[in-house]
Simulated scan of single mutants.
Amino acid sequence: MSEFSTWDVFRNLLAAVPWTIYLSLIAFAGGAVVSLILLSLRLAFPRVAGRPVHLYVQVFQGTPLLMQLFLVYFGLALMGIQTTPLLAASLCLSVYSSAYLTETWYGCVLAVPKGQWEASSSLGLPHWQQMLLIILPQALRLSVPPTVGLMVQIVKNTSLASIVGFVELTRASQIIANATFEPFLAYGAVAFIYFVICFSISLCGRHLEKRIRI
Results as ranks from 00 to 15, higher is better:
Ala77Cys: 06
Ala179Met: 13
Ala27Gln: 06
Leu41Glu: 13
Ile163Gln: 11
Thr180Ser: 15
Glu168Asn: 08
Val33Arg: 09
Ile81Met: 06
Gly188Lys: 14
Gly50Tyr: 05
Arg206Asn: 14
Ala139Arg: 11
Val152Ile: 15
Tyr187Gly: 04
Glu209Ile: 00
Ala161Tyr: 00
Ser200Val: 15
Phe184Cys: 04
Leu142Phe: 14
Ser173Tyr: 03
Leu55Met: 09
Gly124Asp: 09
Leu65Gly: 08
Ser94Trp: 06
Ser173Cys: 09
Thr102Phe: 09
Leu25Lys: 01
Leu150Glu: 04
Ala111Leu: 10
Ser2Tyr: 08
Asn157Ile: 08
Gly124Phe: 08
Tyr22Asn: 02
Leu65Arg: 04
Gly30Ala: 02
Ala49Ser: 09
Ala161Glu: 00
Pro18Cys: 11
Leu87Glu: 01
Ile201Pro: 00
Ile175Cys: 07
Glu209Cys: 02
Val190Cys: 09
Leu133Val: 13
Phe181Lys: 05
Tyr194Phe: 15
Leu87Gly: 03
Gly107Thr: 12
Asn12Gln: 15
Pro145Ile: 03
Ala111Arg: 14
Ala89Lys: 00
Gln129Leu: 12
Ala44Leu: 14
Ser120Asp: 04
Phe166Asn: 01
Gly149Tyr: 06
Asn157His: 08
Leu71His: 03
Tyr96Gln: 12
Leu41Thr: 10
Leu25Gly: 01
Ile212Trp: 14
Met151Gly: 12
Leu69Cys: 07
Pro46Arg: 05
Gly165Glu: 01
Pro52Cys: 07
Ile21Lys: 05
Trp105Pro: 03
Ser2Lys: 11
Leu185Thr: 13
Leu140Gln: 07
Ile21Ala: 10
Gly149Ile: 11
Val109Leu: 14
Val33Ile: 15
Glu3Arg: 06
Phe45Trp: 11
Gly165Val: 00
Ala172Gly: 03
Arg171Phe: 02
Arg11Phe: 14
Val109Asn: 12
Thr63Phe: 07
Ala172Val: 02
Val144Asn: 10
Val167Pro: 00
Leu76Thr: 01
Leu208Ser: 08
Leu132Ile: 03
Leu25Ile: 14
Ala15Phe: 08
Phe4His: 04
Leu133Arg: 04
Ser162Cys: 11
Ala191Asn: 02
Ala189Phe: 01
Glu118Thr: 10
Ala191Ser: 12
Ala32Asn: 10
Ser35Arg: 09
Gln82Gly: 09
Leu65Thr: 07
Gly62Gln: 13
Gly50Thr: 06
Phe74Arg: 09
Glu209Leu: 01
Arg141Ala: 00
Tyr194Gly: 10
Phe28Ile: 15
Val148Pro: 00
Ser94Arg: 07
Ala191Glu: 03
Trp128Arg: 13
Ser2Trp: 12
Arg141Gly: 06
Leu203Arg: 15
Val33Ala: 13
Leu132Asp: 01
Ala99Trp: 07
Trp7Asn: 11
Gly30Arg: 06
His207Glu: 11
Trp105Gly: 10
His127Arg: 15
Ser97Ile: 04
Ala177Lys: 10
Leu93Glu: 03
Phe10Leu: 15
His54Glu: 13
Ala191Gln: 02
Ile193Glu: 11
Tyr73Trp: 10
